[in-house]
Design a protein around this nucleic acid. Structure first.
Lengths: 344, 344
DNA sequence: CCAACAAATTAGAGCGCTCCAATGCTGTAA
DNA sequence: TTACAGCATTGGAGCGCTCTAATTTGTTGG
């Protein structure tokens, strides 16, 4: 029942425990003959090294702690996926727990992860106080994802919500739009940045920004369309929605009153969820490189671990425009194909 | 830099290391006075026990290994969420890696998890050979999720795809439908079971089953509608789609030729993805209790760990019908509200 | 044939903890 | 006073490994 240990392998191979240790760690200073003997003995006994004992003895860890505010959220699940990819590639494992967006639970979750003395700690969308983060950073490298916090001791990975909204506005302006409104995400995360990006981009084009309060849900998107119809005449020709779900709600509300997307009005989402990619919906949207964020987070930790970097890095990733079928030239303009610009 | 150990706390509190150990484990056989002293010393030094050293010494683990075939997939992400909920509730942590649906990688992933000597191992949708699973089960409790494999040593958690399709058919029959077709999921996971459940339920109602080959994508759903329109006259009055995405594709294709859902034809999905809940779509669908599957998986492991259960358990969860707006009585029948039955 | 050196191997302490057996300490009964 | 509980406390071995320093083995040159 109890698994074989290094001593068992050593006994079977007729060598010392230390030699088995060297073989297991792939040391070059072992004769080919003994190596074979050890490997065979290990094979026969079904031996594999005990990672915890190894970690304790060597005072190093191959564990990366990950505190996810909410795994249910597809955004974080993909970040974790990216983290895992890099980690396992480099021989590290992820140890994960969640904080449920509650500071007290997050604090306990972080403490629990730290009790394993991980090589590093990634906090995904934490709501916990900066002091807790600083504390953690005192005992292991820490990287923050989707949370900015300019401590001098932690790395951070964020996407640039301002740039994203700017891309959306630029795309619409290029198509010929000028009456472009923004449905904002209220108090949701990143909403403020997206709003600022929209306003800045509009001003940069000499256009008047119009922000309608909304939320990150489809019903909010639909309600905001209703307000739009009441208050605006003429209607705007394009909507920069708070996110994809909000855009879907807006589109269905427009559809319900006989307005065609993109024929009468263009709509652009944000997040590039799997939703937006459905052929039926074909939503033009802004993609956040979630997977890359996870990868970069892992890289940041491993750089500190393996290369002893101490200066903080702060990645601000550029989102990209994913053009699909919900945007086109405004009505009255020459109808062009979905591709703007180009030689045709 | 280096964190304080038990010896540091003992020295500061003026007691032995063993006493500190007792206090840390909450033993009742410590005088209140010493306990205070130890706790204060620990507090002052910022001491917290080293989980790995503890685990090594006590020959127990508070780690549950989780091998996910694909975290990118929302289904598994939610299962992990359920696992995590129960685990952290019981003082366990999850250690996670992925196998990318490739047997060789999965084998390595499992080995890597086992090297931490976890208290148990959950395999989510593994494709690896049964022998590998049996091996793992030799050294720690194992639970399989979304993979049936009747080894006598492992537990399993699955949803019953046959029951789910049966629910869909029953629902439609109750609404008055009799010409009900199934778009199947081809060779996708669970597709065969859903197909069998559909066929069996139709036969049970004395109806003729009609299965059209399709796939788990929206474009496949649309293509299959095209085939339906070519070949069937009269058209069926209801479609049991392969899954939600397939249903969305079907609905948009029906919409494109002027057929109304549910006015002209009812459509029912499968999976209850976040997609189906959008107000705009309002897809009637079959819900798999993903979160519960994760919870049950964790419970199964912990029962073996804590209560020494050895007999395998095999949970086959009943999916449930989630009624929304894409199903109604067939045309020609008295139009009723969305709720069938009842006193009204 | 032996010193000198490099390469291969090993003994043993130690990582931070748990756990068992042993110790000290009080108070009560004989 | 001694004996003996009963409880609180402690010493020390040991969990499975790594790592340093020491030892053994093998090779070469004088």
């Amino acid at each position: 029942m109890t698994r074989p240990t290094m001593a068992d392998v050593a006994a079977r191979a007729g060598v010392s425990r230390a030699l088995v240790s060297l073989v297991m760690r792939g040391s070059p200073k072992v004769s080919a003959q003994r190596r074979q003997a050890v490997l065979r003995a290990a094979e026969e006994l079904g031996y594999s090294p005990h990672a915890m004992a190894r970690s304790l003895a060597s005072r190093t860890s191959t564990l990366l702690g990950v505190m996810v505010s909410d795994l249910h959220n597809a955004f974080f699940a993909e970040v974790v996926d990216g983290l895992e990819e890099v980690a396992s590639d480099r021989g590290f494992e992820l140890i994960i727990n969640t904080g449920g967006r509650r500071a007290a639970r997050e604090r306990r979750a972080v403490a629990s992860l730290l009790s394993f003395r991980p090589a590093g700690l990634a906090l995904l969308g934490p709501v916990v106080a900066a002091s807790v983060i600083a504390d953690a950073a005192g005992s292991t490298p820490v990287v923050l994802v989707a949370r900015s916090c300019r401590l001098s001791t932690v790395d951070s990975i964020n996407d640039d919500g301002r740039v994203g909204s700017g891309l959306a506005v630029n795309h619409l302006v290029r198509l010929g739009h000028s009456r472009i409104v923004h449905f904002d995400g209220g108090s949701g995360s990143q909403a403020a940045q997206r709003r600022r990006g929209y306003v800045a981009a509009m001003r940069a084009h000499g256009l008047e920004p119009v922000v309608l309060h909304s939320e990150y849900t489809d019903t909010a998107g639909a309600r905001t369309v209703a307000r739009l119809l009441e208050r605006f005449d003429p209607l705007p020709t394009a909507i920069v929605a708070a996110n994809d779900v909000n855009a879907i709600g807006a589109i269905s509300a427009l559809d319900a009153v006989g307005l065609r997307v993109p024929g009468d009005i263009s709509v652009i989402g944000y997040d590039n969820t799997s939703l937006s990619a459905l052929a039926h919906i074909g939503l033009t949207t802004i993609d956040q490189p979630r997977h890359d964020m996870g990868r970069l987070a892992a890289e940041a930790l491993l750089q500190r671990v393996r290369h002893g970097r101490t200066a903080p890095v702060h990645h601000l990733l550029r989102p990209t425009l994913v053009e699909r079928a919900s945007t086109a030239a405004p009505p009255g303009r020459p109808a062009r194909g979905r591709r703007q610009g180009g030689a045709g």
